[in-house]
Design a binder for these strands. Structure first.
Ligand SMILES: [Zn+2]
Ligand SMILES: [Zn+2]
Ligand SMILES: [Zn+2]
Ligand SMILES: [Zn+2]
Lengths: 148, 148
DNA sequence: GTATAATTGAAAATGATTTTCAATTTCATA
DNA sequence: TATGAAATTGAAAATCATTTTCAATTATAC
C-alpha cells in the first residue's frame, strides 16, 4: 500500500497536480476495498469517515488513480463502471454468477496464448482483452437469473 | 429475412402483442444493417424514411427483437448499448481496433473448449461469454489511440 | 363493426457520469 | 514562514443514454 501511495504521488507530481488530503483519502479507501467497486459505492464508503468529501472529488480522483496505473476498469454488464486494483494484480478474467452476482477471478495461460495467436492470424496487434464468462456458481446451480 | 420476420411475428403473438406497422419497420431496418448498431443509430436511419416513428418505439421494438432471439447485445466499451444479428449468426468474439474503431468477428473452437474447461474447474456452469480483444488492425499498426 | 387491450409518440423521468464555478487550498518561491 | 499563482474542492447543474408515463390511436378477436 505504501508503494501504491508513492506511485500515486509520483503520477500527480509528473502532471503538476497537487497532493491533497481528499485525494489521499480516496486512494486509501480504494486500496482498502478488494471488491470491484463503483464510484458510487466508494463514495458511500468514504462518506462514513469523511462526509466532507464530495462525489465529484471521488469521481475525479478515481480517474487519477487509473492514470497512475493503479486501477483498471471492469465491466460486469450492469451498466456501472467498476474499478479493480491493477498494481500488483496480474491480468485475469472473470466468471460472473447470473444469480447472486458474485465473481471469480481466473487465469488460463493456454487461453491467453491462443488469444494472441488468434489476433495475429488476422494481422491484428492485440493490446488488451476482456473475457467474461457468465453463468451460475456452485451455490446457485439450477437457479434462474431472477433469484437475485 | 422472411424467416426472421416470421420469427418476430411468432414471438409477438406468443406474448399477446400486436404486429404493428412501426414494429415491422424497425425490424426491417435492423435486419438491413449489418453493423453493430445502437438504438440511436437505428433511430436516425429509420427517421429518413419514416419520420413519424418515435425514438421510444425504436427502443421498445429493439427489446422485442432481442426477446424474439433475433438480436444480442454487444459491448465495445463505448458506453453505448449495441445490437448485432443473432439469428443465423453463430457465436463469435471480437477484435476491436483502438485507432479506427473497426471490428472483426472471430471464432476459435479451441478457446471455446478451454473456456468451458476453465469454468467447470471452478464448479461454475457457464451460460454465455464475452471475449473482446482490443488492439490495432493491420491498417492502424503503430498508430496511437488518438488518431480516431 | 365493436369492444378491449395493446401501442404509439412526445415529453418527462431516471440514473450514472461529467462539468461548471466561486471559494478554498496547495506549494514553489522568495 | 509568508506570498501568490495555479490547482482543487464541493454543490449544483449539465449531459447523455436509457427508460417510463400518459392520453390519443390502433390492432385484433369476436
Ligand atoms: Zn485474459
Ligand atoms: Zn452464485
Ligand atoms: Zn467465444
Ligand atoms: Zn459481432
Amino acid at each position: 500500500m505504501q508503494k501504491e501511495i508513492e506511485l500515486f504521488r509520483d503520477g500527480l507530481k509528473k502532471n503538476n497536480l497537487k497532493v491533497t488530503r481528499q485525494r489521499l483519502r480516496v486512494l486509501e479507501a480504494f486500496l482498502k476495498t478488494e471488491k470491484h467497486v463503483s464510484c458510487d459505492e466508494l463514495y458511500r464508503l468514504i462518506r462514513g469517515e469523511h462526509p466532507e468529501i464530495g462525489y465529484a472529488t471521488v469521481y475525479r480522483t478515481l480517474k487519477l488513480i487509473q492514470e497512475a496505473g493503479l486501477a483498471r476498469e471492469v465491466d460486469f454488464g450492469d451498466k456501472v463502471l467498476r474499478l479493480e486494483h491493477e498494481y500488483g494484480h496480474k491480468h485475469h478474467d472473470h466468471l460472473i454468477c447470473l444469480a447472486c452476482g458474485k465473481f471469480f477471478e481466473v487465469f488460463d495461460p493456454d487461453i491467453e496464448a491462443l488469444q494472441e495467436k488468434l489476433a495475429k492470424k488476422q494481422n491484428f496487434t492485440p493490446v488488451r482483452h476482456k473475457m467474461d464468462i457468465f453463468g451460475y456458481c456452485q451455490k446457485c446451480q439450477g437457479k434462474s437469473a431472477s433469484c437475485v
